[in-house]
């Protein structure tokens, strides 16, 4: 008996689905990684004026809102960990 079969990893169907989901997020947003990096740096710079943030672990993302990511409106989400509110 093949033990590998019992402790099988993800099926190729699931792998395909997961890969596509990630791939299509970046495909649907027409924005280069360089530009995203520049936006990120600028946002960090501005916020840093008012509070102490963890610029290393901050994340930004552009998503389309609406029916399952096929909507017309796009929004920019930023997740910025705050280290100290009072600088």
């Amino acid at each position: 008996m093949d033990l590998g079969r019992i402790f099988r990893k993800k099926s190729s169907r699931e792998i395909a689905k997961d890969r596509l989901k990630i791939l299509l997020i970046s495909d649907r947003v027409n924005c280069s990684p360089e530009m995203m990096e520049m936006i990120k740096t600028d946002i960090a710079k501005v916020i840093s004026k008012y509070m102490k943030i963890d610029a290393q672990s901050m994340e930004i993302q552009i998503t389309k809102t609406g029916v399952k990511g096929r909507g017309k409106t796009q929004s920019l989400y930023a997740s910025i960990p705050i280290l100290d509110l009072n600088k």
């Binding site: 099926s11 190729s12 169907r13 699931e14 689905k17 029916v67 399952k68 990511g69 096929r70």
Partner: peptide, 19 residues
């Protein structure tokens, strides 16, 4: 192949493309 889990189902494709 769908039965073996080696191909995406029609529902998977519809879920991804949302049309």
């Amino acid at each position: 192949m769908v039965k073996r889990g080696e191909m995406m189902t029609a529902a998977d494709v519809v879920d991804i493309l949302s049309i």
